[in-house]
Each structure stands twice: as structure tokens, then as C-alpha cells.
Computed example of a mutant assay.
Amino acid sequence: MTFVSPARTRRATSSARSDAAIWTRGLTKSYGTRRAVDHLDLQVPRGALSGFVGPNGAGKSSTLRMLLGLIRPSAGRGYVLGRPIGRPDRYLHRVGAMIEGPTFHPGLSARRSLEQLATLRGLGGSGGSARARRTRRVEEVLAQVGLAERADDRFHTYSLGMKQRLGIAAALLPRPSLLILDEPTNGLDPAGIREIRTLLGQLAAGGMTVFVSSHLLTEVEQICDHLVMINAGRMLFQGHVTDLLAAEDPRIHLVPEHDEDARRLAGMINGVGLPVELDLRLGVPDAAGPSTHQPVVTVHGPESLAADLNRMAMGAGISLRSLRTHRPNLEETFLRVTGEIDGDLVSANQLRTVPDGSVPPAGVGLDPAHSRGGAT
């Protein structure tokens, strides 16, 4: 039995807090009998572009509000930029945030809105040159979010995407070390989403920590290198996006040229110990001609097996109409982890045939030799 001194534990905890932009332990928020956030342990690394995802009502907004000092936790503790969340006055000057969409006076221009906000926040210090410093900072953030040419237009004339960018500009005014954004692409068209995606990537590339909640999982997958996934206020996953996807269920789909070869091919693959499914369902022909659906043999294994499977089919005299690999994306993974689809649909532990196939269950998982491409 190894004894770890309390002093060493405290030093390790202190180091973890200082290394993370956001660090919490047991963070909890209850509203009456409903627990919106349930003992959440966050550790968002500094300099990361981190996605914060979860179904509606998962507790994302409550978590962000606690981190910003807008509401008090019911239990637990947390640190933002190394400072306790119970003292937001010690870190908020280094944090930029946009929660639940930007709101500005509709009759004011973007430039005037930001100038007033900079004055209220006391940016630029005091003295005769303070106003000049604030003006320069306003011009910098307007250019940074691509609104310099529309800076004198009134807020009510802005598109939704421009309003979102102005909200991010306001969050950037204090030159934050940490930027927290709640659904910054909500309601945007594809062009607006691309604009925000590019902007966030540029900010993170400049060394800023960006923590962004979103329900657009394809966007999170494209731009974020770190991910926090919660459901019902509880942590489901935290870490690099690639680590989550690598742990999922990669598949290889094979379609024989001749339908009658599908069962034989599935049996051969099953015989070498690879989890395999055989789908024999045929679509109903229509007036335009026969069904375009062919039997599909699905092998649960890494992409590296594709060449070996192709050689196996060729060796048995089976020609393939198609062979393609499928790596689960974040959306599929999210649906599985949150339990919003039937888990049996993504299980690779047992061979499934439809309708009445006779190929026996594999009974074993993917053999390590085969995972290195050793199928023959």
C-alpha cells in the first residue's frame, strides 16, 4: 500500500488548477429538487479550443453561468484562470463572454455600442489618453471580427451573423485570456457558421482559450481539439475529440457483385474471428426498375483491414461491387453515448442477419492480430 501525503495531494491539485483554464470538482447546481449540474469535474486546458456539448437541458448554460459568477453553485468548487469561482472579481477582467446571444441598442452603431461598453468597463485606464486607447481597441476588435466596413451601421440593420460577430467583438474588448461563448452559431446560415468557425480558429491559434457550447456537433468536430460532453448535468466524456472517436466503432462495408455471395463472404470473415453483420434486406422494386439495394456485409474493425478483406474476397472468387470504410463522426458518437438511439444498433458483439441468415455469431471480439491488419 502506497501512502500519499496530504501535502503532495494539495500540491498536485494546485498544479492541476493552475495548468487549466477551467477546473472544477463536484460542481453542482440545484433548482429546488431538480439538479441541473451534478458533481461536474471539468479540466479545460489553457490554449485549447474546447467544445461543450450536450442535449437541451443538459446543464450547459447553468455551468457557464456558475463559471462567470452569475449564479452560485449549490455544491463543489471551481477555478477559472487559477482563481476561485467564489471570487469572480479576481478573474472576470481576463474573461470575455457571450451568453444567450448579443443585445445592443438597435439605434446605435456597432462602433458607438462598443465605445460605450469599453467606457463602462473602464478599459484603457484613466487619464487623458484613456479615450484614445479605448477607441483603438474598439477599432481592433471590429477589424478582428470583420465588421470594420459596417462599423457605423446601426445594430438593427445587421444580419444575425453580423450581430453574433458584434457580440464576440464585445467579448474580446478586454483582451481576454479565456473566451466563453454560449451557442455562437445558433440560428446562423451555413455562410455565417463558416465565418464564426474561422474566427474562433484564429483566436485559438493566437493562444486564447476558447470554451464554446454548441449543439452543432459537426461544427464542434471540425474546429475543436478538446471536448466536454455532458448529459443530465453529468460528465460523459472529457478529452481530445480524436480520442473519443478512436474509441468508437469503425466499420468496413462490403457489397459483393453477386447477391448470392454475401452469405458466403460473411461466413468466411466470421470464421477468422472478426465481428461481422449481414444485411440481406432488399428494397421493393418500383416502376423505374429493380431495387438498388444489395446485400451488405459489415465488418467491425479498423480501416487497416480493408485491403486484407479485399484479398480474402478475391481469393474466394468473390468480386466486390464496393468496399468502403466508415469512421463514426461526433454526431453518431454523441447519440450513442447519450442513449438517444438503440445501443443494439451499434453493437458489434454479435453477428446479425436479416431476415433469416444462418451465419453463426462471431462470439469473439476483434483479435489483436487482425487489428494490425493480419486477416488472411
Rank of each mutant, 00 (worst) to 15 (best):
S304C: 14
R94M: 03
R77P: 00
A362W: 11
S5I: 03
A130H: 06
P361E: 04
G267C: 01
R321K: 15
M66E: 04
P45I: 08
R83Y: 11
R83C: 10
G26F: 12
I99M: 13
V228C: 04
P275E: 05
D41C: 09
R83D: 06
S18I: 10
S159A: 03
R194V: 12
E139A: 15
L236N: 06
G267S: 12
R154L: 03
S109Q: 09
R35P: 01
G59I: 08
I85W: 12
V212Y: 08
D249P: 03
R72I: 02
S213W: 05
T333F: 08
R11I: 12
R121W: 14
V284Q: 14
L282E: 11
M162V: 05
N329C: 09
A247E: 12
A143L: 12
I85Y: 08
V44D: 07
G239Q: 07
S50D: 01
G357C: 02
L309E: 01
A307F: 14
G317M: 06
V299Q: 12
R234C: 01
V354Y: 15
V37C: 08
R137K: 14
G127M: 09
L92A: 03
T103V: 15
A287M: 13
R77L: 12
G161C: 01
R263F: 06
R327E: 12
A246V: 01
G192Q: 08
L114S: 00
L172I: 10
R46M: 09
R131G: 06
L323F: 09
G167D: 06
V138Q: 06
V241F: 09
L173F: 10
L236T: 02
L244T: 01
Y31M: 07
L120I: 13
T119R: 15
P106S: 04
E332V: 05
H253K: 13
E195T: 12
L280V: 01
A16W: 08
T24A: 01
L142R: 11
A58G: 00
R197P: 00
I168F: 10
D342N: 15
R234D: 00
R10M: 11
P302S: 10
R134S: 03
G239C: 10
